[in-house]
Amino acid sequence: MAEWCREHGWYADRYGDGELIESFEAKVAALLGKPAAAFMVSGTMAQLIALRIWCERAGHFRVAMHPTAHLELHEERAYARLHHLDSILLGPRDRPTLALDLAACHERIAALLIELPAREIGGRVPAWDELATLAALARERGVKLHLDGARLWEAREFYAPKTLAEIAALFDSVYVSFYKGIGALAGAMLLGSQDFIGEARVWRRRQGGTLVQLHPLVASAAMRFDAQLAKMPAYRARALALGRALSAIDGLIVEPQPPQVNLFHLHLPAPAEAVAKARDQLAALEGAWLAQRIGEAQVPGWSTIEVYVGDNLLALDDATVVPLYVRLLERARAAA
Rank of each mutant, 00 (worst) to 15 (best):
1 M>I: 00
3 E>S: 08
9 G>S: 03
10 W>V: 08
12 A>Y: 12
18 G>M: 02
19 E>W: 15
19 E>Y: 03
25 E>S: 06
27 K>L: 11
30 A>R: 11
30 A>F: 01
31 L>P: 09
31 L>R: 09
34 K>F: 07
36 A>V: 14
39 F>S: 15
41 V>T: 15
44 T>D: 06
51 L>W: 03
57 R>W: 07
59 G>I: 12
60 H>V: 05
60 H>E: 10
64 A>R: 14
65 M>Y: 02
67 P>R: 06
70 H>L: 15
73 L>G: 12
73 L>I: 11
76 E>L: 09
76 E>Y: 09
79 Y>C: 08
80 A>H: 13
80 A>C: 08
87 S>P: 10
87 S>N: 13
89 L>Q: 06
94 D>T: 14
94 D>R: 14
96 P>Q: 00
99 A>Q: 13
103 A>L: 09
104 A>P: 00
104 A>N: 03
107 E>G: 01
113 L>Q: 11
113 L>P: 03
117 P>C: 12
122 G>F: 15
125 V>R: 14
126 P>S: 00
128 W>M: 06
130 E>K: 01
137 L>W: 01
137 L>C: 04
138 A>E: 03
139 R>S: 12
139 R>K: 15
140 E>D: 15
141 R>L: 15
144 K>M: 06
149 G>Y: 02
150 A>F: 04
150 A>N: 11
151 R>D: 04
152 L>Q: 06
154 E>P: 04
155 A>L: 05
158 F>C: 05
159 Y>H: 12
159 Y>W: 13
162 K>Q: 10
166 E>M: 02
166 E>T: 03
167 I>M: 13
169 A>D: 09
171 F>I: 06
176 V>T: 08
176 V>G: 12
182 I>Y: 02
185 L>G: 06
186 A>P: 09
188 A>T: 07
190 L>T: 08
194 Q>F: 04
198 G>L: 02
199 E>W: 02
201 R>H: 07
202 V>E: 06
204 R>G: 05
205 R>W: 04
206 R>A: 09
213 Q>G: 01
214 L>G: 04
214 L>N: 12
218 V>Y: 05
219 A>N: 11
222 A>Y: 07
223 M>D: 05
226 D>A: 12
229 L>V: 02
237 A>D: 10
238 R>Q: 11
238 R>A: 12
238 R>D: 04
239 A>K: 11
243 G>C: 11
244 R>K: 10
245 A>N: 01
247 S>F: 04
249 I>E: 00
249 I>W: 01
255 E>C: 01
261 V>R: 03
262 N>G: 13
265 H>G: 06
267 H>D: 15
268 L>K: 03
271 P>G: 14
273 E>T: 14
274 A>Q: 05
278 A>W: 00
278 A>N: 02
279 R>D: 01
281 Q>Y: 05
283 A>R: 14
283 A>M: 14
284 A>L: 09
285 L>S: 15
286 E>P: 11
288 A>N: 02
290 L>S: 13
291 A>K: 02
294 I>F: 07
298 Q>N: 13
300 P>I: 05
300 P>D: 07
301 G>Y: 01
303 S>D: 00
308 Y>F: 10
315 A>W: 05
315 A>Q: 15
318 D>H: 12
318 D>R: 05
320 T>A: 10
324 L>F: 04
331 R>A: 05
332 A>W: 01
333 R>Y: 00
335 A>Q: 13
